[in-house]
Write a protein that binds this DNA or RNA. Structure first.
Lengths: 94, 94
DNA sequence: AATTTTGGTTTATAATATAAACTATTTTAT
DNA sequence: ATAAAATAGTTTATATTATAAACCAAAATT
């Protein structure tokens, strides 16, 4: 029987964000926006959801005089991502 | 830059169906329902969408006196699936 | 000093997934 | 023989989700 796919991760944008966060220590909002090719509004909403779930942490500060949003994957997020990938493998092994 | 994920395939149930159809010649509605652990209504809708897109073919007949819905993956569907998996790999390679 | 750009958030809308309700027929039980 | 339940689905209503448009405040540019 096919496993459940964590609905929080089974979303193109959120999965993209998590995928990016896995390979860096931390990432700025603007960098994530560029890399995922998303709109700021959409990204903002999806980051909130990931944060709400405890999959990432979000830190707001300033870079010079401009606002700066910095994201980091959490232990919980990493685990969820790994489980998601594992479940997904059953679906895509050809 | 991360690639687009075919929205028709990036759905748990539809992906599950395609994944199952890949490894068989054809599959009955009831079998797909069992394997994907879905409700008949949901499955019916999602099969229609896959069929509408030309990713699968659906044949309606009778098994004895009972209606029988048989599904088969199409060439187009197979190609789309392979492309989807390929795109997805960028997201999940850890 | 007006205009544009930057870095976002909030909110409205469009799209999607899902289940509930329904249909038609068949099988089983009384 | 007929009422009840099961089978094999479809249709439709609703809840959830994704997404973009509209907005805001501050900073930089003209």
């Amino acid at each position: 029987m096919l496993k459940e796919l964590d609905p929080l991760l089974h979303s193109q944008l959120r999965l993209g964000v998590m995928s990016l966060l896995i390979s860096v220590d931390s990432a700025e909002f603007t960098w994530l926006k560029e890399k995922t090719n998303s709109t700021a509004g959409n990204l903002s909403v999806q980051l909130d959801k990931l944060s709400e779930a405890g999959y990432i942490s979000i830190e707001k500060s300033f870079k010079g005089k401009k606002p700066l949003t910095t994201c980091r994957i959490s232990k919980k997020g990493l685990k969820a991502f790994e489980e998601y990938v594992n479940s997904l493998k059953d679906y895509i092994k050809t």
